[in-house]
């Protein structure tokens, strides 16, 4: 499999009245062709901020403070934010789907008109060709009778159907990479299953690669090949999905897994939540950001700086002084 996207040491800062928030603090990840990668972690850990930065969509008071985004032989961060190269990438070769489908669609334009616009921004098609493509895209994402539905307005679509339209829009120019930020959080489970299955089929059929940002560990277990677990702006553990779930080595990952109820659990079992709250990202102490909540901390964690991400073999990386895998 060939490498499609490589993000290196990405940093994003937000300038707030209380100080500088380092929301993304040196995040690196890779994405191969036909690969589905998951980004997980609690609210505020920098999942969205990192993905917006990849597209240079970071908005004030945020700034991209460093890093590289390597794609097709270029570092995207060297392109001017609103220059022609970046515009060709954004929505063309790399597409992003946001969490709120309703607010991402324009309520006064028909679904078809919006799809046509998306298509024509990036592909040199005539009006009638774009119209045909719009119908084709709606059919691709499983909308019944797409010929008539293109004439409908977003409010005539349910939440799940709007999310399909967003996917259709993201796919309008056959992107190489699709980034989906909480694509199904607002949807019911049955619709969630339909939409995620659709995305997975598209990856298989069209050879697109997919980044799924989510807090839902079930979604990750069912659909994702590799996982990056984030905490306080950094990746604390990454590896194949099976490896991470079967042999979590970071106390935070283990904590997440123990705090979610499972549909197949024995009735009466008890959850073990992670105590406390994620840290305030202003003026971080420099030691491991998980230390105040960590049940496994040793003296070294209090004395030395936040450990580096280190390989434990088999493509599994961990940022922790205590190797939970060995302790067991």
């Amino acid at each position: 499999m060939s490498r499609l996207l490589e993000v290196r040491d990405l940093k994003v800062d937000f300038y707030t009245p209380n100080g500088t928030v380092r929301a993304v603090d040196g995040v690196s990840y890779t994405l191969d062709e036909r690969e589905i990668v998951g980004l997980v972690g609690e609210s505020g850990c920098g999942k969205s901020a990192s993905q917006l930065a990849v597209m240079q969509l970071t908005e004030s008071p945020g700034v991209i403070a460093g890093g590289e985004v390597l794609f097709e032989g270029h570092d995207l961060l060297r392109f001017a934010k609103n220059g022609p190269e970046m515009r060709a990438v954004r929505g063309g070769k790399i597409a992003m789907i946001f969490q709120e489908p309703m607010t991402s669609l324009n309520p006064v334009l028909t679904v078809g008109a919006q799809l046509e616009e998306a298509v024509r921004t990036h592909c040199p098609l005539s009006k009638s060709e774009a119209q045909e493509r719009a119908v084709e895209l709606l059919r691709l994402v499983g909308t019944p009778s797409p010929e008539t539905r293109v004439k409908d307005y977003p409010h005539q679509f349910s939440g799940g159907m709007c999310q399909r339209v967003m996917i259709a829009m993201g796919l309008s120019c056959s992107p190489r990479v699709l980034i989906a930020d909480e694509p199904t959080t607002a949807l019911d489970v049955t619709t969630q299953a339909q939409v995620l299955r659709l995305m997975r089929n598209l990856v298989e059929e069209l050879g697109t690669a997919l980044v799924v940002v989510t807090h839902n560990l079930g979604v990750v277990a069912r659909y994702v090949h590799r996982i990056y677990v984030m905490y306080a702006g950094r990746v604390v553990e990454s590896g194949t999905t099976k490896d991470i779930f079967a042999h979590p080595r970071h106390p935070y990952t283990l904590g997440l897994l123990k705090s979610v109820p499972r549909l197949d659990e024995r009735h009466g079992s008890r959850l073990i939540p992670i105590e406390g709250l994620p840290p305030n990202l202003i003026d971080m102490p420099g030691t491991c950001a998980f230390l105040p909540r960590c049940p496994n901390a040793i003296d070294r964690c209090r004395e030395e700086s936040w450990p580096e991400l280190e390989s434990v073999g088999g493509g599994h990386d961990v940022r922790c002084y205590v190797n939970l895998g060995e302790a067991r």
């Binding site: 489970v189 049955t190 299953a193 979604v219 277990a221 099976k242 779930f245 197949d264």
Partner: peptide
């Protein structure tokens, strides 16, 4: 409905 709910365990899934 049960089938649609993913279980956070890739081996079970």
């Amino acid at each position: 409905l049960l089938a649609a709910v993913p279980i956070p365990d890739p081996y079970v899934e």
